[in-house]
């Protein structure tokens, strides 16, 4: 790990200001992604700003009946929160499908949204990777791409977004609340938060230099039956090959979001519109524009089968 200096921030605005003014500064929350990458020198910050003591660890009702989740709320606490369990069960389910008990005890809401891809070539510093080093090429394109994305990909990068939580946040139309280095607060719809790779895969989110996530806000509960289904190589403690988050209404309408297949948490209105026609139609709509490799072509069929299994589960319950 490269040397760095460390400070424990006690004030949100000051933390953002410091992050914006110190060259090479980064926030550290749970540290479960950042430190992993720093040990491999994929991330090389020269200054760490510890945001764990900013009082951003609360979950509160908003005036319009939604829920404001502090950026430092741990994944375990968010999944176990009473209001989340009752009104946003798909979020509890997605969180609980991710990582391990130990990791969820540390991982935070903000950090989870910003976790970086698990593309094996991004992790292997001997290989070219446009995301890690702009313009160096993409090792995955002609390599082992089994785990990688098939939607929203570009000629420069086919990395998948690895988060389970973010898929549920996308389904629920969350917004990401931030404060910039100059003290200005703004709210970013989750749909616009993660960027597609295009020609610049190293640019991953809408955040500006020094901008800190303060909370993630969910709109008021939408009811319905909440499900999250994750398919992976082992039954626990593994990233998704494919995951589907869904909320079904009594009248057969539904909304869907997908993990493991997109360059960002994936959602498309045409898939929601096909809900009443069944799993096959939803899969077809969701996969429109999919671009696969020899290694990850199987994900298309896996999406359809995962949806089929969700529909069956729903029928069995009804």
């Amino acid at each position: 790990m490269r040397p760095f200096t460390y400070e424990r921030a006690t004030d949100v605005a000051a933390a953002a200001r410091a992050a914006g003014s110190v060259q090479g500064a980064r926030f550290i929350a749970g540290g479960t992604n950042l430190l992993d990458l720093m040990k491999l020198q994929i991330e090389t910050p020269t200054h760490l700003i510890d945001v764990n003591h900013l009082g951003l660890d609360r979950i509160e009702r908003t005036d319009d009946g939604g829920l404001r989740i502090g950026a430092l709320v741990r994944n375990t606490d968010l999944a176990a929160d009473k209001a989340v369990r009752r009104d946003y069960a798909v979020l509890s389910r997605a969180l609980l499908a991710g990582a391990s008990g130990q990791l969820r005890n540390k991982a935070t809401t903000g950090g989870n949204l910003l976790q970086r891809t698990r593309c094996p070539y991004f992790y292997d510093t001997r290989m070219p990777c446009n995301k890690r080093k702009a313009g160096s090429g993409c090792g995955a394109m002609q390599g082992m791409s089994r785990s990688l994305a098939i939607l929203g990909v570009s000629d420069a990068c086919i990395a998948q977004h690895p988060s389970d939580m973010a898929v549920a946040m996308r389904l629920l139309d969350a917004q990401v609340d931030t404060m910039s280095a100059d003290g200005v607060a703004r709210a970013i719809p989750i749909a616009d938060f993660h960027l597609l790779p295009g020609d610049t895969p190293h640019k991953e989110t809408a955040l500006k230099a020094g901008e800190i996530i303060t909370s993630v806000t969910l709109p008021k509960p939408i009811g319905g039956t909440h499900v999250y289904r994750k398919v992976r190589d082992r039954a626990s403690y593994a990233f998704a090959l494919v995951s589907v988050a869904a909320v079904f209404d009594k009248d057969g309408s539904a909304r869907f979001a997908f993990g493991g297949i997109g360059a960002k948490p994936w959602r498309t209105p045409t898939a929601d519109a096909a809900a009443k026609q069944g799993a096959k139609a939803v899969a077809e709509a969701a996969l429109s524009g999919a671009r696969t490799t020899h290694h990850n072509d199987f994900k298309k069929l896996l999406v359809e089968r995962t949806l089929t299994s969700l529909y069956r589960q729903r029928e069995a319950r009804a």
């Binding site: 790990m1 040397p3 200096t5 460390y6 400070e7 424990r8 003014s21 040990k39 200054h47």
Partner: peptide, 28 residues
């Protein structure tokens, strides 16, 4: 890993507002 690494000190502008701050390479 940690034992092998040489300690090259980064240059850093002092902008840390809180007391809990380390200088480059300083022990804390």
């Amino acid at each position: 890993g940690s034992a092998v690494l040489a300690a090259a000190a980064p240059t850093l502008s002092a902008a840390a507002p809180t007391p809990k701050t380390s200088g480059a390479n300083a022990m804390m």
